[in-house]
């Protein structure tokens, strides 16, 4: 056998084919946007793009948190409910306990972190499958939201309402989205914790035998998912200007779809925040475009289902081709 150099030179320069294979979702998004722009002139209007941005914010923020969990080979079904619970709990603390308004958002994030940590502890130490632990939390968090609010909407505290406002010409949800995305990408890419998430998701036993604290990593990913869910819940409440107890119902599935369309693998170890953002944008652009084209919401669901299947199919085919 030859030495290390077997005469294979790495290809330099821009390789379009390779780029396309690794960024299928992005190319899909661009194609989608072009088609929508041609089909409906209103699509590219500034007002509509801002709309898309606002619509994408909630799902993308939830999906960023979900990306941590999925990279670590877990799943978090509780994000929609935790979003509602966090927003409702912080609003009630302001209204009922006289919590200083400046602390509203922090309080919401803490509630989200706690809920996430409980799910994580149940999964890591209680040995419940992540699916079950988060399914349980989904029910518990939604139930608590109803208990706190008695099932009625509550007025959004000023800090939360501000999350739905504008910063100059740019809506605050878009600003929050960008900051949350940068933070999430930073954690995954540059921190030790992020590297641990990939290792745990890639092979939990190999990670454990390498001395990686796998249980703490599992708790952390659910905790982060809870924090991002809380943020998404408060952004939604801000946009609506009131905290609805039904916020985020069914949103966990959109978030999972965004992560998967973005190229993450449900078996863990693979996933990027940039991909997740693209995935969320794909969902938002489809919804928005179909609205503009006056397609019924019922058909929209059909289209989105097909898109999810196609995105994963594309991924499967790609892996088949690159594997020796």
């Amino acid at each position: 056998m030859n030495s290390t150099a077997t005469g294979i030179s790495r290809q330099r320069g821009f390789d379009l084919k390779n780029f396309a294979a690794n960024n299928g979702a992005l190319i899909g998004l661009i194609v989608l946007a072009v088609v929508m722009a041609i089909a409906s002139p209103a699509f590219l209007s500034a007002q509509n793009l801002v709309n898309v941005g606002e619509q994408v914010a909630t799902i993308a923020i939830l999906a960023f948190g979900m990306t941590f969990v999925i990279v670590a080979a877990g799943i978090d079904l509780s994000v929609g409910s935790v979003a509602a619970l966090s927003a409702m709990a912080s609003a009630s603390m302001v209204a009922g306990w006289g919590l200083p308004e400046v602390l509203t958002i922090v309080a919401g994030l803490v509630v989200g972190a706690l809920a996430g940590a409980v799910t994580g502890i149940a999964a890591a130490y209680g040995k419940l499958p992540a699916f079950i632990a988060s399914l349980a939390m989904m029910s518990v968090a939604r139930g608590l939201t109803m208990v706190i609010s008695d099932g009625r909407p509550v007025e959004a505290p000023s800090q939360v309402a501000a999350l739905g406002g504008d910063l100059g010409p740019i809506p605050v949800p878009i600003v929050v989205l960008v900051i949350a995305g940068l933070v999430a990408a930073f954690v995954l890419r540059f921190t030790v914790a992020g590297s641990y998430m990939y290792a745990v998701g890639g092979n939990i036993e190999a990670a454990r035998l390498s001395g990686i604290p796998v249980k703490r990593v599992v708790v952390l990913v659910f905790l982060l998912s809870g924090v991002f869910a809380a943020l998404a819940g408060m952004v939604t409440a801000g946009r609506l200007d009131s905290v609805q107890p039904t916020i985020g119902t069914g949103a966990e599935l959109d978030a999972i779809a965004a992560v998967v369309i973005g190229g993450a693998s449900l078996s863990g170890g693979v996933g990027r925040i940039s991909g997740t953002l693209v995935g969320a944008l794909v969902l938002a652009v489809i919804r928005n475009g179909l609205n503009l084209l006056n397609v019924s919401p019922f058909w929209q669901q059909v289209v989105i289902g097909v898109v999810i299947a196609l995105a994963v199919l594309f991924d499967v085919i790609r892996h088949k081709n690159t594997r020796l």
Partner: peptide, 21 residues
């Protein structure tokens, strides 16, 4: 394969797991 390596991660990561922290 099942206990030692993350097969779908690069060599550099697999070598580095014990020293990341």
């Amino acid at each position: 394969k099942h206990q030692g390596l993350v097969l779908d991660a690069p060599v550099k990561h697999n070598i580095g797991y014990a020293t990341l922290g």
